[in-house]
Structure formats: C-alpha cells, structure tokens
C-alpha cells in the first residue's frame, strides 16, 4: 500500500500549488496513472478520498484519473501493441516472446482546478 504515501505526497504538492495561486479550494485534480506504474488506481482513489477529507482545501475535490495504454514492443521485429497493462504472451506479428514495455509507468499530476 505505497499508494497512501504517494497520495500524501500529492496533497502536499497541491497545498503548495494552491498557496502559489492564492486559491482557497481545490475543485478538481487530474492524475495520469500508467498501468505499469505499480500504483493500483482503486487504492490511490481510496487513499485520496480518506486523506482529502481531513483538509478543507480538498474536501470537495474530484479526482479524475487518466489511464493511458501500456505499449509493448517486440524486440525481434519491432511490432508494437497497446494493452491495458497486461504483457502479451508473444508477439502477434512474429511470435517472439521477448517483448519489452515502453512507457506506461508514469504517475503524473497533470492538472489542478481551484478557486
């Protein structure tokens, strides 16, 4: 459950951003969570719901989560496949089994809406 510590890190960043922008309420937070980031979206959302409630700044904030596809590239023929995070057993183009993930491991605070 490292999601809780990552949510704490997020909330600290949001406090700084709100202060810099002289905002008193955070309304919407957009996070991009790659399927290979090692972060479970449900756990992250759960952590946000629990921790955000403790601070007036975030009490009514909505958390939007964007999940991009994972991209796997065959190391033999270069064929690329997009999946929801599951690694293909083998390349659909040439059948090779050595398939390397490219990206999909990001955890990015994209946008904040506040007032």
């Amino acid at each position: 459950m490292h999601e809780i510590s990552l949510v704490q890190n997020l909330l600290q960043q949001l406090r700084d951003i709100a202060r810099e922008n002289k905002a008193s309420r955070v309304l919407r937070v957009t996070m991009l969570i790659g399927p290979l980031s090692g972060v479970v979206v449900d756990s992250f959302t759960f952590g946000f719901d629990i921790l955000a409630r403790e601070d007036d700044l975030f009490r009514d904030a909505t958390l939007d989560i964007v999940v991009p596809p994972a991209i796997f590239r065959c190391s033999s023929c270069g064929h690329q496949e997009e999946t929801d995070g599951e690694r293909p057993e083998c390349c659909t183009a040439c059948g090779d089994r050595i398939i390397i993930a490219h990206g999909g491991d990001d955890l990015i605070l994209q946008q904040v809406e506040m007032e």
């Binding site: 997020l10 922008n21 605070l109 904040v112 809406e113």
Partner: peptide, 21 residues
Amino acid sequence: HQHDQPAGNEALIVDINRSLF
C-alpha cells in the same frame, strides 16, 4: 501556472504535468 489572481470565485485551471516520483 498562471499568475493572474482568480477573480472572485472563478475557477482557475493550472497545468502541472509533474511526476509524483
């Protein structure tokens, strides 16, 4: 981030694009 002050209750949308890692 934009340096304009939010006018009244107008929502301010700021692009951050920063990794939590």
